[in-house]
């Protein structure tokens, strides 16, 4: 059994001058764009599930961040604030896209373990360690399963588990409490685990 003490892994390489950026300096802004584009693109891409849409939202995110830089209050990291803008734009856009493969709320609920008097009811699948070895095929299964998660859950798994952003920072980005982040990511992990049971057990 191991405890996972998370360090802040999300701080980008200190590649831009924040004060200059906030005073409108284009070079500082472009340095920030260079440093943040890839990772933010990947987060947005997970939400909208479309390459072209993700590029367009990435561009709009940076543009809005630059225009609204006067409202950045230094209460969080600049990148935390930037991610909140990007995720909000992505969420607005995702409503226009097909959601056919996404689990309904009922389907998602059925993937959660059930308890009676504190005990699990029904069989609990146990994963076979050798299934972890067929790496590429397995990762394709995992990607597909993540894509099927309802949006709120897909976002929290992307930020917390894929990008490894610490819980307090995810809470700030999403504007919810740390407890709510843990509940959400927990339910998402349980659903993912259940979706992978068929392949892994």
């Amino acid at each position: 059994m191991s405890s996972r003490q998370e360090q802040s892994t999300s701080e980008p390489p200190a590649g831009f001058d924040l004060s200059a950026l906030l005073s409108g300096d284009h070079k500082a802004f472009e340095d920030m764009v260079r440093g943040e584009s890839d990772r933010l693109y990947n987060v947005i891409r997970r939400i909208v599930r479309d390459d072209d849409e993700a590029r367009s939202i990435l561009q709009e995110t940076f543009l809005q961040a630059f225009k609204r830089r006067g409202s950045f209050r230094r209460e969080s990291k600049f990148t935390t604030w930037l991610y909140a803008i990007g995720i909000n734009l992505a969420r607005g856009a995702v409503r226009k896209l097909s959601r056919s493969a996404v689990l309904t709320a009922e389907e998602f609920e059925r993937l959660q373990p059930q308890f009676v008097d504190g005990h699990v009811t029904g069989p609990v699948a146990q994963w076979k360690p050798d299934r972890m070895l067929e790496r590429q095929e397995l990762l394709d299964q995992v990607r597909e399963a993540i894509e099927r998660l309802p949006e709120d859950y897909r976002i929290v798994v992307t930020l917390r588990d894929i990008e490894e952003i610490p819980t307090p920072e995810v809470a700030t980005i999403l504007g919810i409490s740390e407890g709510a982040v843990r509940v959400r990511v927990h339910r998402a992990r349980q659903a993912l685990k259940k979706l992978l049971d068929e392949y892994m057990a």
Binding site: R39, R55, I146, V157
Partner: peptide, 23 residues
């Protein structure tokens, strides 16, 4: 054990290669 593996697998799907012309 399987819950931790689930977290590890999610992490392993991280894409490092955004399109080269993106920036």
């Amino acid at each position: 054990n399987d819950y931790e593996s689930t977290v590890d697998l999610s992490r392993a799907t991280r894409v490092q290669n955004a399109p080269p012309e993106l920036v």
